[in-house]
């Protein structure tokens, strides 16, 4: 497993996407799957940085771990911001997604895109650490 620690700031998002994209290319994932995983990680990292750290007046790091086996590619984001389980958030319904833009609520889309884009998502909280896990199956 390869680990990278980055400061939890929005400026780090492009570096995080680059790390994920490189791991996907090494693993031989398709362009579509690569994009979906990079988007999922980007959306959850954005939540961690803005809601987990900045809105709390906290600073810290995000640790990105990358692990490839012959079956799948796993990305893990770890942070010490406030506890936040993306699976527990209310997501836009099919009815919400059909609404004209004038009537749209702004929010929930990022987590929706993240959870819909990966083959498996998991969240754990232990010892004051949030652990978001994303898995893409290899063909």
């Amino acid at each position: 497993m390869i680990q990278h620690s980055l400061p939890a700031s929005l400026a780090a998002l492009s570096d995080i996407r680059r790390l994920v994209t490189q791991a996907c290319q090494t693993a031989g994932l398709s362009e579509d799957a690569t994009y979906r995983l990079a988007l999922a990680v980007d959306e959850i990292a954005t939540n961690i940085i803005t809601h987990g750290y900045e809105e709390q007046g906290m600073t810290g790091d995000i640790v990105v771990s990358l692990d490839q086996t012959d079956k799948d590619l796993t990305v893990i984001l770890e942070d010490t911001g406030v506890a936040f389980d993306p699976r527990a958030q209310s997501l836009p319904t099919a009815e919400d997604l059909d609404k004209p833009l004038d009537d749209r609520e702004i929010g929930g889309l990022g987590i929706f895109l993240a959870l819909a884009g990966v083959d498996r998502f998991d969240y754990q909280r232990s010892d004051n650490v949030n652990r978001n896990l994303f898995v893409m199956n290899l063909a």
Binding site: E31, L39, L101, R104
Partner: peptide
């Protein structure tokens, strides 16, 4: 990312219902 989609929502709500939004050349992902 969804942050970009939220700006599209902002654009529609800021400019009003009568202003049509055209998206040209968006491809792939």
């Amino acid at each position: 990312a969804s942050a970009g989609l939220r700006v599209l929502v902002f654009a529609k709500q800021r400019m009003g219902r009568d202003v049509a939004i055209y998206v040209i050349g968006a491809t792939g992902p």
